[in-house]
Design a protein around this nucleic acid. Structure first.
Lengths: 217, 217
DNA sequence: CCGCATCCTCATGGATACTG
DNA sequence: CAGTATCCATGAGGATGCGG
């Protein structure tokens, strides 16, 4: 008696876009895999260590089901297997950014020993800064746990690059909490500067993060 | 040895807005409960029949956890208990609309015997029609499984009302597939009219749904 | 009826070991 | 490195019970 290969996660059986979406990405870990892949293709073990806690059989299962559902594709590269989002899978960026923005207040309680990957912050920053523009364009680096995230603010909106080749002149060295505080507006530039070392011009940081958000009504 | 009352679903333990969001709404059924409540407060049994398949203990569990997480609140109304979204919970509308829009292509394969609630379509329509405006304003009703969904298109963007007191003059009587086809652009107004009865002016429908979408690149 | 709580079964998730 | 195999813990699904 051959084991039925656990073909599909239980469908909600509802004629509804949200329900059908959750049928294919609603299972545990799925959206976090997608979040990681939004920064670019990754290897199996990269994913496994980044997700920090996922069981290896689950990761394999999830990647298989994401692949059969057309969200992820395997790329046989020169250096082995790479997992990447398909173009349809990449369309999950908007829902994920919306979800991350909604969940940002939950980050205010701090790290609490949670795992952290610079990639997650690079993903979140453009969404958190959406609507903010700057003329002339501003460019600020955040050095954080050994990585460098460069945020660009100009009239086309915010962008973030992870470990780019080019280093900006203004770089704040801080921990994840501080950067999130700046982005969500619970921290002012001067509050951040009080405890974190900055290379370059403090006014660049002040211009990008001028004041706290008004309290949420 | 008293059972630990299954306080919290397993946290991902990641310092990331998406992960923290999924910590509180990522469990099975949670987002579908929120989707239903986006249309307004509901009773326990309304939710139970609408969700069609959820076990009653699970619904109770989920409502409790959503309540302790500040997403849902109980309202002791005149006619018993009502479950409603808190204002923070209502902020899930944007992520849900984005997710539903992303999942809309999955609806093209049709009903397939799936359950259906007019409320789900009323939720989805504004997101699916986003970007479409009409001057002068258009008002179209969809009569569908006994319910009436009225879509308004004007320069402030699309809206949808479920079973309003006012009846528009133009009403298409159709099944969910057809309405979704019109909204996602896989069906033209004339294709819909060919098989579905319309009260009122065909041109109103044609103006609102002028042609098929171009294929997604 | 409505709003749950309990009980039982089985599918799914999680941890660890092992292999091509 | 990229997974598979195995075993145990937990959560989902379904039926039923029960007080208000």
């Amino acid at each position: 008696m051959d084991k039925v290969k656990h073909v599909s996660s239980r469908s909600y059986g509802q004629f509804c876009g949200v329900a059908r979406a959750l049928d294919v990405v609603g299972d545990r870990w799925n959206l976090l895999i997608v979040r990681d892949l939004l920064c670019g293709p990754m290897r199996y073990n990269e994913l496994k260590t980044s997700l920090a806690g996922i069981a290896t059989n689950l990761l394999a299962d999830r990647l298989r089901s994401l692949e059969t559902n057309g969200i992820v594709e395997r790329q046989l590269g020169d250096a082995g297997v790479l997992y990447a989002l398909t173009s349809w899978g990449a369309g999950l960026r908007e829902p994920m950014e919306a979800l991350g923005t909604w969940g940002a207040p939950l980050l205010e309680r701090g790290r609490e020993g949670d795992a952290f990957q610079p990639r997650w912050l690079a993903n979140a920053l453009p969404a958190l800064l959406r609507g903010r523009t700057a003329t002339p364009p501003l460019e600020i680096g955040f050095e954080i746990e050994g990585a460098l995230i460069v945020v660009h603010l100009d009239k086309s909106g915010p962008r973030a690059d992870l470990n780019p080749t080019h280093r900006p002149t203004t770089i704040l060295t801080a921990d994840p909490d501080t950067v999130v505080g700046l982005a969500t507006g619970t921290l002012t530039a001067d509050q951040a500067l009080a405890t974190n070392p900055l290379q370059g011009d403090p006014n660049t940081l002040r211009k990008a993060f001028p004041h706290k958000h008004p309290p949420p009504q």
